[in-house]
């Protein structure tokens, strides 16, 4: 099965023949070897594969946070290749939400301030931003803790704050790199539950890079990678089989 053959391929994210190398000479690594990848609107798309196969690199390219050497990348019909750095930054600011493995919340800011950052970056006023942020905190079950600081929370709670922050400006693309790997398995499930509950929206594409087989069952589609290339794209019955096999 190829990505283009998928019934969902209405192209929220479309990556064609992307090559990315790091370093020169002996230190040269080809992280992406002409990869093709696509993800659709409304789906929760997991990217899996062994360590070092290029998952994070692919995610960085799609997010526009990393330059690549060759190939085409478009997100919601916007071509990222050939775009100026400033334009990519502006595109990212309004269209993409991020969830990182290490949460990356700013420790000296309160939860509501942390969550309001994407809105402020998009030019919202402080009052509006904080009201919206408080709403999102409520949605991830952290009502009443708006003025706490991240260090006063557990890892799972911090990741919930990160989810609120990633969604507060209603991005169309949500990008998550190993959102559960810093958490114990019960908390990991909680986070995946929240993600599939709160993050899913008809027009939104959620891409999650993960190592954790227990998260597979949340996927609408799974792209499996190895050594800089896509080896399989699974959905429908094949996906069900894959999930039950890895459990």
């Amino acid at each position: 099965m190829t990505p283009t053959a998928s019934p969902h391929a209405d192209g929220a994210v479309c990556v064609r023949g992307v090559i990315k190398t790091f370093g020169v000479g002996d230190a040269r690594t080809v992280a992406l070897k002409g990869i093709d990848f696509s993800a659709a609107e409304g789906e929760m798309h997991l990217v899996v594969g062994p360590s070092g196969c290029g998952k994070t690199t692919l995610l960085s390219v799609v997010a526009g946070t990393l330059d690549w050497d060759d190939g085409d990348v478009s997100v919601f019909g916007t071509r990222l290749d050939g775009m100026s750095k400033g334009a990519v930054t502006r595109f990212r600011r309004s269209n993409i939400g991020f969830i990182f493995q290490q949460f990356n919340l700013i420790p000296t800011l309160t939860l509501v301030e942390n969550v309001s950052v994407p809105l402020l970056l998009n030019g919202a006023g402080r009052r509006t931003a904080e009201e919206k942020a408080a709403q999102l905190l409520k949605q991830v079950g952290l009502e009443g803790r708006e003025n706490k600081r991240p260090t006063q929370l557990s890892g799972g709670q911090q990741q919930r704050v990160a989810i609120a922050r990633a969604l507060v400006h209603e991005p169309r693309l949500l990008i998550c790199d190993e959102p559960t790997s810093a958490l114990d398995s019960a908390t990991g499930h909680q986070i995946m539950d929240i993600l599939s509950g709160v993050a899913r929206a008809p027009g939104r594409c959620v891409i999650i890079v993960t190592h954790d087989p227990r998260t597979y069952r949340y996927a609408d589609r799974i792209t499996e990678m190895e050594d800089g290339r896509v080896t399989r794209v699974l959905d429908g019955a094949a996906l069900g089989e894959f999930v039950s096999m890895t459990h």
Binding site: G86, R90, R93, F98, N104, I106, P107, P118, L121
Partner: peptide, 14 residues
Amino acid sequence: NLKNLGALKAMGAG
């Protein structure tokens, strides 16, 4: 604060 500044950059701070 490099990680935080990097996160801000990823989120679209120029």
